[in-house]
Design a binder for these strands. Structure first.
Length: 887
RNA sequence: GGAGGCAUAGCUCAGCCGGUAGAGCGCUCGCCUCACACGCGAGAGGUCACAGAUUCGAGUUCUGUUGUCUCCACCA
């Protein structure tokens, strides 16, 4: 911290410098330590393609808060960073840039050359992501950064593949899969997003073979697939069609003879009750086709074009073919009618083109056996979701999970470690490149061209990053990890797959807690997206308001698992909070003459009040943190700093700091420093930069390491000797009086510069005597007289003397400002308050007269209510006198 | 069709062992009070969606209703 402190906190100047200092001093190192318990966080590795977006910023912030908290609590905290190779996304980006800049496709370059380009890209953008994360303040161990295509992680991938294959849990087969004709690859089920789109339902007439003028009418949303029809199905219970089951019909335009079969799958109530069967292009038709041995004829190629052999339709794009076929059907008189029809169309989650279901030979992971254990560990609480409701989402998916299609027709990724023998046709699967076929010994073997789904390697992240399959010391010490933080949108993609992978390969769930957060939306509640152009760049926010402010914004004002709207105004508010802390600290430092902030022996009332407040804050915040209620914890620290420390305590110390007693002055400094320093520790996980910067400038406590960083200090502990409940209450009586006087003055529009004598009638003479300096300074009293009288005794007299009377629970205060009083307004005010307090007292009395309440409610609650009623009764009595005096 | 979230101040949202309804922004009034106008002080503003149930006591627990959003499933 510089000697001359600016009045406005400038985060840009501080944040980079502070981070550099931490990094240079190895503050982030996750070190194995036999004396410590490990705490490990699994970071969702961002895609190498990218730019850090708000979702990452949220991930980073929550994780960093947790890891800093645990580190300060004395755990051996490890946070492994890294990046994901993001198969389709990255390949698409590189292909795009290749096309735009050089007019080349990946095929022009060839596999090897193309992959070199992708690696170049990875090196460039991977580094950028790291810089962006550092700007957010994340304290992970950068030396341990991993990439999903590193040698070590690739080895883990091959090991897992071979192991699952050997156990019969990976197989290759021809199945109906989701195919993206734009990305030209197979997709897994979770990579398909369904969108409601307007479409049509075409009713088409298929003539029955050998029966002139007899037809079945089928209804379809995708007429172009009729080229691949190999049957028509009706429900066996459908009386309308009982007579035609077993007959055949002639496929229009194609002329193929196809059977009419009966299958329960057909819904009698929908369309015409007759369904055309296209087993090669529809998952349901495929199932029906299996039951009735229907042929499968694939009519669309990998790019979504009509295959060869269909005359003029061949080579047409599927939508073009649809138009042509509909036109021809109409012309031929086959088209009965067209109805508008809303239906749910599967689209590629990457490029949003319509997905084409089709039959293709792909690799799959058999899910049933894996899901069993993955369900158990969550059901039995070995892995918990926070909030808990997401375990239902998880279980529901896992219970109905289908086999996972893991092969992708891409180049960028882990190439499938399987070789097909050109002699015997059998497959050899191996971790290392085999030179011969395992079955016949032939050297004529060829590796699969396809790569694995990106999530196949991401699923291993918690253990592959720690050295698995080697039994490394890191793995032994840090694994299983503790917490995974991520958005609910990737529970299926990643969380579920990590859990079953870890259970299968390490025998243990990968973490005990999955901390789920919601999505960040724009200020209108819309998803942030490129196409809408409504994305808010976290780095821009950090630049403008500071990463601390951005972090604080992200963590407060929302509850775990719920979506959050992003308001720039809130960033600004948090920036203001940072500035508030800055100036409070500036105030403390400006008044500083001491060089250590040990607590003094002699404590004043206000010292005990703030220390006691702090002392109860500590366990509350700690508790909230441990229960992942980070927003609540942050809010409590915020309130303490702004309300208790700044608005009250600092103001109260000014009397001493600006007085002439050197010892009292020094004691005030000690307590100011002590409380600030402890508070900075509590705030540090949320606002790491500014807290570190200020803490470096503060004097140390004797037990603190002068050279150390705040981020490595011990988390504050509650201290039994710093609890002063009586003084807390006493101080608050004075504070109540101050607020009440200020309110009265404000009502009468008395400017702060106009001081007035203040007479306090109270039984708590000692308390108010101690409060004189505060009444003077904060209630604008020129002088204060304390009268140790029963407050009720002479209110009438006071009123007659033309004093303004202020009534609180513990005192009656008189101000010689009667000339400023508007009697009508005054009467109105008193009546209003009387009404409110009477109602309140009545409520309380009813409650206290209720035997049910007195007998059944906990004693302390009853006691508290009694005290409240007593105080209220006394206050009312005085208000009534006051009202009477006003007439 | 199945599952879940949400409904609290003008707006956006906290409020997680049931015990006097909160914050930020906005609004009104007064203040450049020697840390801070990115500030200080004082206010206005709420039938906690609706109906029941449990309880001495419900914004908070349970059931149902309505509205709204999301996820899963996929009747061509």
């Amino acid at each position: 911290m510089k000697k001359e402190l600016p009045k406005i906190y400038e985060p840009q100047e501080v944040e980079g410098r502070v981070y550099e200092a931490w990094e240079k001093n190895g503050c982030f190192k996750g070190v194995r330590d036999p004396d410590k318990r490990p705490f490990t966080i699994v970071m969702p590795p961002p895609n190498v393609t990218g730019q850090l977006h708000m979702g990452h910023a949220m991930d980073c912030t929550l994780q960093d808060i947790l890891i800093r908290f645990k580190r300060m609590q004395g755990y051996a905290a490890l946070w492994v960073p890294g990046a994901d190779h993001a198969g389709i996304a990255t390949q698409a980006k590189v292909e795009e840039s290749l096309r735009e800049n050089e007019g080349l496709s990946r095929y022009d370059l060839g596999r090897e050359k193309f992959l070199e380009r992708v690696w170049d890209w990875k090196n460039k953008y991977g580094a950028r992501i790291v810089e962006q994360q550092k700007k957010m303040g994340v304290s992970c161990d950068w030396d341990r950064a991993r990439f999903t295509m590193d040698e070590g992680l690739s080895k883990a991938v091959r090991h897992v593949f071979v192991s699952l294959y050997d156990k019969g849990l990976i197989y290759k087969g021809s199945r109906i899969i989701n195919w993206c004709p734009h990305c030209v690859t197979a997709l897994s089920d979770v990579e398909v997003e369904y969108q409601d789109k307007p479409g049509s339902l075409w009713h088409i007439r298929y003539p029955i073979q050998g029966e002139a003028d007899k037809y079945v009418v089928v209804a379809t949303t995708r007429p172009e697939t009729m080229l691949g029809d190999t049957g028509v199905a009706v429900n066996p219970a459908d009386g309308r069609y009982a007579g035609i089951i077993g007959k055949t019909c002639i496929l229009p335009l194609v002329g193929r003879e196809i059977p009419i079969v009966a299958d329960e799958y057909v819904d009698l109530g929908f369309g015409t009750g007759c369904v055309k069967m296209t087993p090669a292009h529809d998952p349901n038709d495929f199932e029906v086709g299996l039951r009735h041995s229907l042929e499968t004829i694939r009519v669309l190629d990998d790019h979504g074009r009509v295959a060869q052999g269909y005359g003029k339709y061949s080579g047409m794009d599927r939508y073009e073919a649809r138009k042509a076929i509909v036109a021809d059907l109409e012309e031929g008189g086959w088209l009965v009618k067209v109805e508008p029809h809303q239906h749910n169309v599967g689209t590629c989650s990457r490029c949003h083109h319509d997905v084409e279901p089709l039959i293709s030979a792909q690799w799959f992971v058999k899910m049933q056996p894996l899901a069993k254990e993955a369900l158990r560990v969550v059901r039995e609480g070995e892995t918990k979701f926070v909030p808990e409701r997401f375990s239902k989402t998880y279980a529901n998916w896992m219970e109905n999970v289908r086999d996972w299609c893991i092969s992708r027709q891409l180049w960028w990724g882990h190439r499938i470690p399987a070789w097909t023998c050109e002699d015997c046709g059998k497959i050899t699967v191996s971790e290392t490149d085999p030179s011969n076929c395992r079955h016949c010994g032939s050297a004529r073997i060829k590796q699969e061209d396809d790569v694995l789904d990106t999530w196949f390697s991401s699923a291993l992240w918690p253990f592959s990053t720690l050295g698995w399959p080697e039994n490394t010391e890191d793995l032994q010490y840090f694994y299983p990890t503790d917490v995974l933080v991520t958005g609910y949108d990737i529970i299926f993609f990643w969380v579920a797959r990590m859990i079953f992978s870890a259970c299968e390969h390490t025998g243990r769930p990968p973490f005990h807690t999955v901390f789920i957060h919601g999505l960040i939306r724009d200020d209108k509640g819309r998803k942030m997206s490129k196409s809408l152009g409504n994305g808010i760049d976290p780095l821009e926010m950090a630049e403008q308001f500071g990463a601390d402010a951005l972090r604080f914004n992200l963590v407060t004002g929302n509850s775990p698992g719920n979506d959050m709207r992003f308001y720039t105004e809130r960033c600004e508010a948090m920036r203001n909070f940072a500035n508030k802390i800055w100036n409070a600290s500036r105030f403390v430092l400006m008044n500083l003459t001491i060089d250590s902030c040990a607590l003094p022996e002699q404590l004043e009332l206000e010292d005990k009040w703030i220390l006691s407040k702090l002392n109860s804050l500590i366990p509350e915040v700690t508790d909230n943190m441990e229960r992942y209620e980070l927003g609540v914890a942050a809010q409590k620290v915020y309130d303490f700093i702004w309300d208790s420390y700044c608005d009250w305590y600092i103001e109260m110390t000014k009397a001493r700091l600006q007085g002439d007693a050197p010892a009292a002055k020094e004691r005030a400094q000690q307590v100011l420093c002590y409380v600030l320093s402890e508070t900075l520790k509590l705030l540090h996980p949320f606002m790491p930069f500014i807290t570190e910067e200020i803490w470096q400038a503060l004097p140390r406590r004797p037990e603190e390491d002068r050279e150390a960083f705040l981020m490595l200090q011990r988390w504050p502990q509650q201290n039994g000797r710093l609890s002063f409940p009586q003084e807390e209450r006493a101080m608050e009586l004075v504070m109540e009086a101050i607020s009440a006087v200020r309110a009265r003055r404000a009502e009468m529009n008395v400017p702060p510069s106009k001081k007035a004598r203040l007479t306090v009638a109270t039984l708590e003479t000692e308390v108010f005597a101690a409060g004189i300096p505060f009444l003077k300074r904060l209630a604008h009293a020129s002088e204060v007289t304390i009268e140790g009288v029963s407050a009720a005794a002479d209110s009438e007299q006071a009123a007659q003397e033309g004093m303004v009377e202020v009534i609180t629970h513990a005192a009656r205060l008189f101000l010689p400002l009667a000339e400023l009083v508007d009697l009508d307004k005054e009467r109105e005010r008193v009546q209003k308050q009387l009404k409110k307090d009477r109602a309140e007292l009545e409520k309380l009395d009813t409650k206290l007269n209720n035997p049910g309440f007195v007998n059944k409610a906990p004693a302390h609650v009853v006691q508290a209510e009694r005290e409240r009623a007593e105080k209220l009764r006394a206050l009312l009595e005085q208000l009534e006198q006051s009202a009477a005096a006003l007439g």
